[in-house]
């Protein structure tokens, strides 16, 4: 049995269509994941009762499979409130919610890695908590957590394949469609893997570039 490159080639337009959805879903989830994660990561280490809320969110999200979370949001919640949620919106919510928990832990660890003297120096200038976070702690934290954030986004891009389970035609789902049409699993999944690889490789190069450009002044 020979490898049919022509089939790989012919699958490309459809697969790239799916890949585009994968990229969109991941990008949106990364955006909201950073916002949710930063807020939750900060709450996690405040001395307010909100820290318990953050802890429950993080533990629940990291302790349950993403696939189950997707099902809860797509099938579970609409069943209770008697409505329906579009698959696309469900996927965005599930992926953002999931990513936020991992980002929260990265942000928390990042904040805690900043020397305590930085907070003291800011406070000694009369800065408020908000000013200290905004101008001193978070800028240094984000420089420092670029590598683990990059890993998280690569994982998220790959995990987004799970939304194929709610019939969203992202990359894996498109692969499945072509597969059932052609019965050539090896060529199809090889092509799918190749596209994922190109996407993840691009992210890791971008992250490395960002890391290099942000290193300014932080030798600590």
């Amino acid at each position: 049995m020979d490898f049919r490159w022509d089939l790989v080639w012919e699958s490309m337009p459809l697969l790239l269509e799916g890949a585009w959805l994968t990229v969109k879903l991941t990008a949106i989830a990364v955006f909201f994941g950073i916002i949710i994660g930063t807020i939750m990561g900060m709450l996690r280490i405040t001395r307010t009762p909100f820290r318990y809320l953050a802890a429950v969110y993080i533990d629940f999200t990291r302790g349950t499979p993403l696939l189950v979370q997707i099902f809860i949001i797509f099938y579970g919640i609409p069943a209770i409130i008697n409505t329906s949620l579009p698959a696309y919106l469900s996927a965005v919510i599930a992926l953002s919610f999931n990513s936020g928990a991992y980002v929260a832990e990265i942000v928390r660890a990042g904040i805690q890695s900043i020397d305590k003297g930085q907070v003291e120096a800011a406070q000694s200038l009369g800065m408020t908590y908000t000013q200290t976070m905004k101008y001193i702690i978070l800028p240094q934290t984000f420089r420092r957590i670029v590598p683990p954030l990059g890993n998280e986004f690569i994982a998220l891009l790959k995990d987004s394949s799970l939304v194929s389970a709610i019939a969203l035609e992202e990359l894996v789902r498109k692969g499945n469609i072509i597969m059932t049409r052609t019965f050539r699993p090896f060529e199809v999944w090889f092509a799918v893997a190749l596209i994922y690889l190109i996407m993840t490789f691009t992210i890791s190069r971008l992250v490395a570039l960002a890391e290099k450009n942000l290193r300014v002044g932080d030798s600590a």
Binding site: Q118, E120, A121, D218
Partner: peptide, 11 residues
């Protein structure tokens, strides 16, 4: 206040 370890903002 001036600290033993300077605590300048490195960024």
């Amino acid at each position: 206040m001036v600290f033993q370890r300077f605590n300048l903002f490195p960024h």
